[in-house]
Structure formats: structure tokens, C-alpha cells
């Protein structure tokens, strides 16, 4: 199975960096997610996860987003729901949510809301960013 790699862009829209590794099971989404076709973008990630779990039992997903718009936020929820589904089926699913300090865009609050909505355990981890 191939890795899924998408290099983030700051063009007309902001695409996050994606690196889903099939060999290690470590998947990272970082940067900013401001997309027009949010569902299309995240559905691709969901399809990769579904294919991955056909042959694997363990995944670690690291979210390190600093901003996302509301249409991305709904698509991210769908991805988290899929991860929760696999966890309920007995797969080893770890989700780490990194939020910046200072957290001007309230990423911690977003994660808390996702935990509430999905029932998924998400590890909340803060990291320091240089002030611009």
C-alpha cells in the first residue's frame, strides 16, 4: 500500500500537509485547512484509512492544525468518526491533537468539541509557537 502524501499549499486555498505512512501507521495532518471542496479532500484521507485497516490493526493519527474553516471542520469530524468506528471494532487507534500555545485560534476548544461529538479519546498536547 502506498503512503498518502500531500504537500500543503498557501495558494488560493490553504491545503494542509498530509503524510499518512502505510509502513509505520503514523499519519500526520498539519498546517492550515481552508478549502472549498473540503469533503473531497478529507474523503480521500478516509478512503486511505479504510484501505489501511484492511491489512493493519494499529494507527496513530497526529493532528497539528493551526486553523481550519467550518467546511473543513465538518469534514474533519467525518474522519474522526471513521477512526472511532475502527476503534469500536477493536483496532488500536491513537489520536493526538497538538494545539499551539498561544492558542489564538482556539484549537484546544475545537478538539474538546470533537471529543464530545465522537466519543473518541483524543490526547491533547500543547506546543509552543514563536510569536510573529
Amino acid at each position: 500500500m502506498e503512503d498518502l502524501k500531500i504537500t500543503g499549499q498557501h495558494g488560493s486555498f490553504f491545503t494542509p500537509n498530509v503524510h499518512f505512512s502505510a509502513s509505520t501507521g503514523i499519519c500526520e495532518i498539519s498546517g492550515e485547512s481552508y478549502l472549498e471542496e473540503s469533503f473531497e479532500f478529507y474523503d480521500r484521507l478516509i478512503r486511505w484509512v479504510e484501505e489501511y485497516f484492511q491489512q493493519n490493526d494499529r494507527i496513530i493519527v497526529n493532528f497539528k492544525l493551526t486553523y481550519f474553516n467550518t467546511s473543513s471542520s465538518r469534514a474533519i469530524l467525518d474522519l474522526l468518526k471513521v477512526l472511532k468506528k475502527y476503534k469500536d471494532e477493536g483496532k488500536d487507534v491513537t489520536v493526538n491533537w497538538y494545539y499551539p500555545d498561544p492558542d489564538d485560534d482556539e484549537m484546544l476548544m475545537e478538539a474538546e468539541d470533537y471529543i464530545d461529538e465522537t466519543g473518541l479519546d483524543i490526547n491533547l498536547i500543547s506546543y509552543t509557537i514563536e510569536k510573529k
Binding site: E37, S38, F39, N69, T70, S71, S73, R74, A75, L77
Partner: peptide
């Protein structure tokens, strides 16, 4: 946000 996606809606409907 937890309600089903709306047909033809690109957004999250929570703007």
C-alpha cells in the same frame, strides 16, 4: 455539525 451532510452544501452549515 453532527447532522447529515446536506446535498449540494459545500460548507459545514455552521458558519
Amino acid at each position: 455539525r453532527s447532522s447529515p451532510r446536506k446535498e449540494g452544501h459545500k460548507g459545514g452549515n455552521i458558519g
